[in-house]
Amino acid sequence: MKKALLIFLVILLLPVLVIGVINRNDDYSAERSLWKLNKQYHEIAKDPKAAPPASFDGLIAKYGKFVKRYNASKVVPIARIYIGRVYAVRGDYKAARKVFEEVIGENANNMIMISMAYKHIIQTFAAEEDFVNVVKIYEEIKKNYPLTEIGIRAPLDIARMYAVRKEELRKTAAINSALTYYKELLKKDMEPIAKMMIMRFESECYFALGMWKEGVDTLRDILIGFPETEYLTVARARWLISTINAMSAGRLKNYDRPVEIYSEFVQKYPEHPYRQVFEQVIAKIKEAKAKSSEAAQSK
């Protein structure tokens, strides 16, 4: 029995030891170490003024050691971004931006890292209330990455920034500028997914300017123009239906427009897997319209 117990223990412990040794610097080990370092960052970030100055330097040093140890790991850029965040939380925005810019330079093919780095650069300028440079960065993103998500949303992000700062005139000007930019951009050749994204932001511009009909028409163009389920995913279809319905009923006071759009879709793509869904939505809208007319008549 004791012999059997020993054998069991060896069989249980051996794989753990072997796997642990083989993979001591693999991505999983790096993720685990980074997660623990990030926890320390979030503790400091909760109340940076209460944290002793040495804790920032200590954490930066730990991240530095991490980068050295796991230099081949995919998560190293995230660790570098966190180094920048520690600088930012300490109030050293220049040093933070330097780190973020290095991340952008070293990860030219990694749009996720580039987006993250730019987002943090913008946050540091916003923290310094330097909105001129915030706009400059957005323009830089637009110029260097025009057909990526951060590039496409940059014009609208500028408008959102003015909206948050309650600068209505600048916001309206930015939205108009974004709308013109999107219309120009749509004339170029591009991947369908980028086109869809641009049209979506175009519709957001129309809604922000109170041009409800144009906004709904743009959503209609997305629905009819990109029926493949590869582009018209369940989540996107849901979003399109809810936005078309909300804007048509709430803003245009027109129950018939969504029915026209969905009927057009069903007629054009009779074999589409979402056909039943659209037919159900049409039925529900007609029912809602009938109920509201009855209620209006009884008044």
Binding site: M1, A4, F8, L12, P15, V16, I19, N23, D26, Y28
Partner: peptide
């Protein structure tokens, strides 16, 4: 006791295995 130890061993081994399946 021994058959229960075997049950315990097999279950712990499978748990350990599942814990390391995402590693080389």
């Amino acid at each position: 006791l021994f058959p229960y130890m075997v049950i315990c061993f097999i279950q712990l081994f499978s748990l350990e295995f599942l814990n390391i399946v995402h590693r080389a």
